[in-house]
Amino acid sequence: MAIPQLQNTKPKVKMTKESPSLKGTLASVFLLGFFLMFTWISIYFLFLDRL
């Protein structure tokens, strides 16, 4: 009945000390974040300009 599921059968994970290197990830999300800020601020200034 019970169906073994990949996630459940995985061995107990040891807390690794060396986290994987995610420099590229950090850079990518920050690029994304700056794009969000840029868009938001542009439209906010459009609003102010039209006041």
Binding site: M15, S19, L22, K23, T25, L26, V29, F30, G33, L36, M37, W40, Y44
Partner: peptide
């Protein structure tokens, strides 16, 4: 729950910006 250090930085920055936006409006 364990969160990667960079993810903490990202969430801190991201959520921080959201609150800045909210404050401005």
């Amino acid at each position: 729950m364990h969160i990667h250090k960079y993810e903490k930085i990202w969430l801190f920055f991201g959520i921080g910006s959201l609150f800045v936006f909210l404050t401005i409006i």
